[in-house]
Nucleic acid binder design. Structure first.
Length: 503
RNA sequence: CGGGCUGUGGCUCAGCUUGGUAGAGCGCUGCGUUCGGGACGCAGAGGCCGUGGGUUCAAAUCCCACCAGCCCGACCA
């Protein structure tokens, strides 16, 4: 048995492995406020890349950015009945606006006339603004996105996957017609799917949520659903068709082309820092984080071999020169991101730190390499022992292609994994067997996505959830839509849906 | 919000049963030897033992209360 950098391994204890990967890669940590995390530079670097790349895709589809307030008047939240019900239990509420010293302590003072809710999402406050901005069909569509933090007071937080405060983007659009709004909802789901696949190397299923999993207040919730290495599903992004529910609640009304009045058709769509958690669980291994090059804060780290003091200067200079040449190369249409680790610590320790951080390419350069005009190259998608020795020139010329091949390799691997654990299931017994671990005391990784028929009722869904903790993750687009029989109720089923345990 | 467990240097923990001068490993700092796969030696810094009260000549240790965290449940787009 070989030693792994992460203890325990994925097979031994997946949730604990996940925490250790984050810690070892120095991505984030829990803060002094329960449920809130500190995102450290390496983790933030990933988010910055996601933001930059997604933002470009939003702009390319005609959206602009704006910013709406963190605080929402309580009365706004009350406007949409289902919305209230969905979020009321997890809202942080601001009731005072001042602190006064009393017995050496600070106590809240200056009670607000109307409490303010820290946004759990922004439909209501953005709706109120749109109601003022939209007068005529000529004012439509409104295509706005905002990058923001939101707060949902979660009982059981987990770094990146579910935190009380998290970062996201929320797009909010208003349209003249139902068809246009539906098209927008679809279009943005497509953007998410493409981003997940091409940038995060995550194959995802797209589809619609069942009634019970729908966004509170939405007519329809579309989602991208990913599978991670413990074979559970994770909702990685959602796009909602809100119909006229929110425009009616907020009064987004416009004069139609024929002189009538109508409520606008709205959508909203978002992805969050949860994508980072998804990324970690999808690609990382027992030696730590594995990053798709496209979102890696640094794609190549140069590790100068600093042995003899008299050679130090020369080695560092060679490292600088190599870095400069690499930065002139491109991968994915951007210039290659390179950093040099100049720290004077043990070479082995340093190397392992970068393995755990998941940097795609590690390049050692020392006196012997300089002499031979070579570098020692290691890829994060290969064994940690593998080392190649291309010439320096070869390496520089191939750097971009190497990164792209790592990116493609990760996607291929994740796709194979997902396909291997996606099964057509037709009987209730097979379904139970699929989702039941062999060792109840210490459940092993089991299950996956079950493509099974479902009668479409919330009762059947609830029954399955009770028994197996398995839910309908999505009613997938495309694929097999032949009718069948629901194995749980015997009633007719319009088509197969994806069942899985989920995050 | 229920049930269980845990709070001791930066981190992981021992010490508590049976009260008597605060411990280890890792990490950190300095010096030296090392260095192409997780180095070693020596010297050092660093702690109101979660908080408050009680018992006692004496409390990390016993008792009570509170606070915080973790796990399990409930809850969760």
């Amino acid at each position: 048995m070989s030693k792994t950098a992460i203890v325990p391994t994925r097979a031994e204890n997946f949730p604990e492995w996940y925490q250790q990967v984050i810690k070892s890669a120095d991505l984030a940590e829990n803060s002094d406020v329960r449920g809130c995390m500190i995102i450290k530079p390496w983790g933030w670097g990933i988010w910055e890349n996601m933001q930059r790349q997604l933002d470009a895709m939003f702009k390319a589809t005609g959206h602009v950015n704006a910013y709406f307030p963190l605080f929402i008047p309580l009365s706004f939240l009350e406007k949409e009945a289902e919305h209230v019900e969905g979020f009321a239990k997890e809202c942080a509420v601001v009731t005072h606006h001042r602190l006064e010293a009393k017995d050496g302590k600070l106590v809240p003072a200056g009670e607000l006339n109307e409490p303010l809710v820290v946004r759990p999402t922004s439909e209501t406050i953005i709706g109120a603004a749109y109601a003022r901005w939209v007068r005529s069909y000529r004012d439509l569509p409104v295509l706005i996105n905002q990058w923001a933090n939101v707060v949902r007071w979660e009982m059981r937080p987990r770094l990146f996957l579910r935190t009380a405060e998290f970062l996201w983007q929320e797009g909010h659009t208003a349209h003249e017609t139902k068809e246009e709004a539906l098209e927008e909802t679809r279009k943005m789901l497509g953007v998410y799917e493409k981003f997940a696949r091409e940038h995060l190397a995550l194959p995802v299923f797209t589809g619609a949520k069942s009634e019970s999993e729908r966004f509170p207040g939405a007519v329809d919730t579309l989602c991208i659903e990913a599978m991670v290495q413990d074979r559970k599903a994770i909702q990685a992004g959602t796009s909602h068709f809100l119909g006229q529910n929110f425009s009616r609640a907020s009064g987004i009304e416009f004069a139609t082309r024929d002189g009538g009045r109508e409520f606008a058709w709205t959508t909203s769509w978002g992805v969050s820092t949860r994508l980072i958690g998804t990324l970690i669980m999808a690609h990382s291994d027992d030696d730590g984080l594995v990053l798709p090059p496209r979102v890696a804060p640094s794609q190549i780290v140069i590790l100068p071999v600093l042995t003899k003091p008299e050679l130090r200067e020369a080695v560092l200079r060679a490292a600088e020169e190599l870095a400069a040449e690499l930065r002139m190369q491109t991968a994915f249409g951007e210039s290659v991101r390179v950093e040099i680790d100049r720290r004077d610590i043990g070479g082995g320790t340093k190397n392992w730190e970068w393995i755990k951080k998941g940097v795609p390419l590690r390049v050692e350069i020392g006196p012997r390499d300089i002499e031979k005009g070579a570098v020692a190259l290691s890829r994060r998608d290969r064994s940690t022992k593998d080392k190649e020795f291309p010439t320096r020139t070869e390496f520089v010329a191939s750097a971009g292609a190497l990164l792209e091949s790592i990116q493609n390799g990760l996607l291929a691997r994740a796709t194979a994994f997902r396909d291997e654990h996606t099964k057509l299931i037709d009987s209730a017994d097979d379904f139970r067997a699929f989702f039941t671990p062999k060792n109840e005391a210490k459940p092993e990784i089991h299950g996956g996505f079950a493509l099974a028929h479902w009668d479409g009722t919330a009762e059947t869904e609830e029954k399955i959830k009770e028994e197996l903790k398995v839910t309908v993750r999505c009613i997938p687009d495309g694929g097999d839509d032949t009718p069948g029989v629901c194995p749980f109720s015997g009633r007719p089923s319009a088509r197969r849906v994806i069942f899985a345990k989920s995050y």
